[in-house]
Design a protein around this nucleic acid. Structure first.
Lengths: 217, 217
DNA sequence: AAAATACATACCGTCGCGCGGTATGGGATG
DNA sequence: CATCCCATACCGCGCGACGGTATGTATTTT
């Protein structure tokens, strides 16, 4: 294939194919050759020109997966018209809305095939999302009196792990009923921390989300 | 090497070596050849005679890792002199005691190198331990009135994931202080579910455990 | 024109794993 | 007790695929 004047398009194509294959077959069961076969004449050398390793591709893929969500978190975090607790509530409401129409649900992903991919999300949640987005909000909530906790950093981790991993229908392929029950337990947990951030409208949306996902399977 | 009269000893030797290597270098960075090199003349064919794949060895290793712990859970589950809530409390107390002297802490394990190993523990927790041990206890607690929850299956999952994964110092290499704070948050979560199963004695033990682990690093 | 970049091609070492073969045990038979 | 027989513990070579690299070449940029 001839040299491309816009190499970032090539990078994008590689990432798109990698994302799809990782989702369909799992990271460990996707070979570089698999990607090449889906990249219409692109060669192994090309891939290794843009990425230094297969793992490097995984990192790029997960970054892309979370970047959109992280942007939303950043926007809410930086608003000045809400208390800490209200920000938390807004986040969970937004997450539910977005998930319904998320592209992620169109590829029938299966994390249970891909320990590496799950692990990558796992670490992103713990190392980036929790300290960068949830922790500042908890701290703000402590300052403005809307949240009370002694250990905000650990609480941020626990909340986000429960939300991003445990309640993630891609990780556990839950039935709609199961998702609903998990969300109720999650809501109860939050309430136990003095964070009543879940209302009936959100429960309704959840049921909608669960059934959409079920249809795509 | 001559034929062994007791092949289960050979299997045991393979599992011991595999366990050590998985812990030290991670599953994906341990090759069959690595195992052979540590098995004093045993051959590749021998390994594949006893195990049908490398992954099969991983499963056997994790089974062995959790078998001891699961036995303890079964004993407590089947006692008749305790209410459901008391059983839960006993479990957490026992876990802390055992961890201190656990062999696992003598090999400087690093789960962060081994997504496959972590994933294996993860699924064991969700698919086996939670429904087989914690769920019956929660149900019993509901029956005897010591526990109140609408969704015991989901609660069992959440509790055990928090305990086995999030608070596991092998997964997150926490400082003693971090472990302590996580445990406090965990205790608060449990209390939010009406499960006050943590007392001061356990907090003391936790600090002991954390410092032991730190020393071995 | 020179340098940098975007690819292609050919190749390397290692991996998981299967397979044909060998040696050794123990139960059945006499 | 001796012999036979076969299940099985084990050996070790080799296959195909894998992740990754070295080098060459064409095209763009400076």
């Amino acid at each position: 294939m001839a040299r491309n004047k816009h190499p970032e398009e090539t990078v994008q194509r590689i990432l798109d194919v990698a994302f799809r294959l990782f989702m369909e077959k799992g990271y460990e069961h996707t070979s570089i050759q698999d990607m090449i076969d889906h990249l219409d004449g692109l060669s192994k050398g090309a891939i290794y020109h843009h990425f230094k390793s297969k793992e490097d591709i995984l990192v790029a893929v997960t970054d892309k997966m979370t970047e959109e969500s992280n942007q939303m978190l950043a926007v809410i975090r930086d608003r000045t018209d809400l208390t800490g607790k209200e920000k938390l509530k807004t986040i969970f409401k937004e997450s539910l809305c977005r998930s319904v129409q998320d592209e992620i649900f169109t590829v029938a992903p299966d994390f249970s095939n891909s320990p590496r991919l799950l692990f990558s999300i796992f670490r992103e949640t713990v190392d980036e999302a929790a300290p960068d987005y949830i922790l500042p909000i908890l701290k703000e909530g402590i300052a403005d009196g809307s949240i009370r906790t002694e250990y905000p950093a650990e609480l941020a981790e626990l909340i986000l792990l429960a939300a991003n991993i445990w309640m993630n229908p891609m990780v556990f392929d839950n039935s709609p009923e199961e998702s609903y029950r998990k969300f109720r337990v999650f809501a109860q947990m939050m309430q136990g921390f003095g964070l009543d951030v879940v209302d009936d409208e959100m429960l309704g949306r959840l049921q909608e989300l669960a059934s959409v996902y079920q249809k795509n399977k």
